[in-house]
């Protein structure tokens, strides 16, 4: 491994903090606290992206996920006045718990398969001083131009649909 001790340390640190925040997020009763823990997970993921040479995606992660999407979630929680944890237990019964246990077993199997996988060697790092948007925008605006345009149409449809659905009729 050509990466130093400090790199490894911070990689594990951000990964562990992200997973711990995700576990805390799933177990919170209060939706606002859950949303804020999820924001923490997303920041850790952004750090991991930047450490894996995807700086642009890391910045977009902070702007779009932590900035925009989670603000929309918190806004809806505020709008519907759900800030307090619900009185009834917010956890489903045994059937769902068994299903969740099966999901955990699938995880263990997945990790065992992953552990004996031979991965190809890493691509070289970006040379110092390259524009970090170039490796993404080259394929985005040439090879994937049609999906890019379709995404813009999808976003337009989503905006119109959200307004229509959430508008108070009357």
């Amino acid at each position: 491994m050509q990466y130093g001790f400090l790199y490894q340390f911070f990689f594990y640190l951000f990964g562990v903090i992200g997973v711990a925040s995700a576990i805390t997020f799933v177990t919170r009763k209060n939706p606002v606290a859950a949303a804020l823990w999820l924001v923490n997970t997303m920041f850790c993921l952004a750090a991991l992206y930047i450490m894996m040479d995807a700086q642009f995606v890391g910045a977009v992660q902070v702007l779009v996920y932590a900035g925009a999407i989670m603000v929309v979630f918190l806004f809806v929680v505020m709008l519907l006045n759900l800030g307090q944890p619900s009185a009834a237990a917010d956890i489903k019964g045994t059937g769902a718990r068994i299903a969740a246990g099966v999901a955990g077993l699938v995880l263990v199997a997945e990790l065992l398969v992953l552990a004996r996988q031979k991965l190809p060697p890493l691509l070289p790092d970006l040379p110092r001083g390259t524009n970090i948007t170039v490796p993404i925008t080259e394929p985005l605006f040439r090879q994937y131009l049609l999906p890019f345009e379709l995404t813009s149409i999808l976003l337009l449809v989503a905006i119109v649909g959200a307004v229509v659905l959430a508008k108070r009729r009357g």
Binding site: A22, I23, L82, I91, K92, A100, A103, V106
Partner: peptide, 26 residues
Amino acid sequence: MVPEALFFSALLFVIGVVGVLTRRNA
């Protein structure tokens, strides 16, 4: 670095699945 990232990814995905299966708040 890549196997660790895939490991964290699997963990996060399963935490999400468990949340979808066990929570009631939409």
